[in-house]
């Protein structure tokens, strides 16, 4: 019986691996960018299943929510209609014209020159070969990093080892990661293009589904956050799920409150960085290193960091998806507000 189960799982592994490579090959080979993006989302979902098979449930959650979900929305959003500042339009006295993206006039890209394709194929084959060779020489008998982590586990303030690594042992990485997210939002907003004309409302069904799914997504986010202390889950997965709710709300045409919404969003974006730095100062205040918190205070500090980080991560992901800052004074900019 045991060998039969092993054999069936091995067959599943082969099917998943072949699907992964097949998706990668198809999305690279197609000339249709939209098709490539959809295949990438399929690739991400397959990847989440692979993480589950490898026992990396935390990573599976993050991959499904961020790798396939948010990244897919970002890449699809890059292909939607947007204004274009064009020479001809400027000559006719207009700053920019609307550039529709419909199947009929979507750009059809020709393949690159044959010389470049041959060079790319050679580079790809060489890289894949070297990686396969290196993989075959990875030592199979090593204890890994778990034994180094084990002594820190009892007083780290959480039971899920991945959460301990992210928020205690390697908290520096996570602090910088949150700063990277903040920097990406600032940079994306700084290079924003003018907003496209507001599309017509997407219909009653989406509005109804949004009213149901946004509270549910926030609830699931809170659940993932709370469970993350002891089981797979945590701030990043929770933040991504809540960001999905935010993107859905924006699609459904939910608007910010007339006053104060933009300021609150900006405050929420930087909150995690500030709180994390403040928690990091707990160590130096007691004569210990920066970001060093163990024992009694650790659990509370990790909880505070994770709650605020969830908020900031969700806002950051919605922020990069929107691609432009929320208007500070909605009264003046009128209909340009599409940050939900």
């Amino acid at each position: 019986m045991a060998t039969e189960v092993t054999g069936a799982l091995l067959a599943l592994d082969v099917v998943l691996a072949v699907s992964l490579v097949g998706c990668a090959a198809a999305l690279v080979a197609t000339a249709d960018v939209f098709k490539a993006t959809v295949l990438f989302i399929v690739f991400g979902v397959m990847m989440a299943l692979v993480w589950g098979r490898l026992g990396a449930v935390d990573v599976a959650l993050a991959e499904a929510a961020i790798g396939a979900g948010i990244t897919g929305a970002l890449l699809l959003g890059a292909q939607t209609a947007q204004p274009a500042r064009r020479r001809g339009a400027a000559a006719r006295g207009r700053e920019h014209t609307f550039q529709p993206a419909t199947p009929d006039d979507a750009p059809v890209y020709q393949p690159a020159r044959p010389s470049r394709r041959v060079a790319a194929a050679l580079a790809a084959a060489a890289v894949a070969g070297v990686v396969l060779l290196a993989l075959s020489r990875v030592p199979t008998r090593h204890p890994g990093l778990a034994p180094i982590l084990a002594p820190h586990m009892p007083d780290a303030g959480a039971e899920n080892p991945v959460t301990v690594v992210l928020l205690s042992v390697r908290a520096y990485d996570t602090l910088l990661e949150i700063v990277v997210l903040l920097a990406a939002v600032i940079a994306a907003w700084a290079s924003a293009v003018p907003a496209a004309p507001k599309p017509e409302p997407p219909g009653a069904l989406l509005a109804a589904a949004t009213r149901v799914m946004v509270p549910v997504a926030v609830l699931i986010g809170g659940y993932l956050l709370w469970r993350g202390a002891a089981a797979p889950g945590g701030a990043f997965q929770a933040g991504a799920v809540i960001a999905g709710a935010g993107i859905l709300a924006a699609f459904a045409g939910v608007e910010l409150p007339r006053r104060g919404g933009a300021g609150l969003i900006r405050a929420g974006l930087v909150a995690a960085t500030l709180v994390f730095l403040g928690a990091g100062a707990y160590g130096p205040a007691r004569g210990e290193p920066f970001l060093h918190y163990r024992g009694g205070a650790a659990e509370g500090l990790i909880l505070v960091i994770e709650v605020v980080a969830t908020l900031s991560i969700a806002l950051s992901l919605v922020g990069v998806f929107m691609g432009r800052p929320p208007p500070r004074t909605p009264e003046r900019t009128g209909g340009d507000d599409e940050f939900g």
Binding site: L54, G55, A56, D58, V59, A62, E63, I66, G67, I70, T71, L74, L75, G77, A78, G144, L145, A146, I148, L149, P161, V162, V164, V165, L166, R170, D173, T174, E177, V180, L181, A183, A184, V185, A187, A188, W189, S191, A192, G234, F236, I313, S316, L317, V320, F321, G323
Partner: peptide, 27 residues
């Protein structure tokens, strides 16, 4: 053997950094 949590945490960090970079690239 039980999965090693340190690479898992690194990969979660990597996934978030990737989506941040992708968001900026899209902009």
């Amino acid at each position: 053997a039980a999965p090693d949590p340190v690479p898992h945490a690194m990969v979660i960090t990597g996934i978030v950094v990737t989506v941040a970079a992708t968001g900026y690239a899209v902009a």
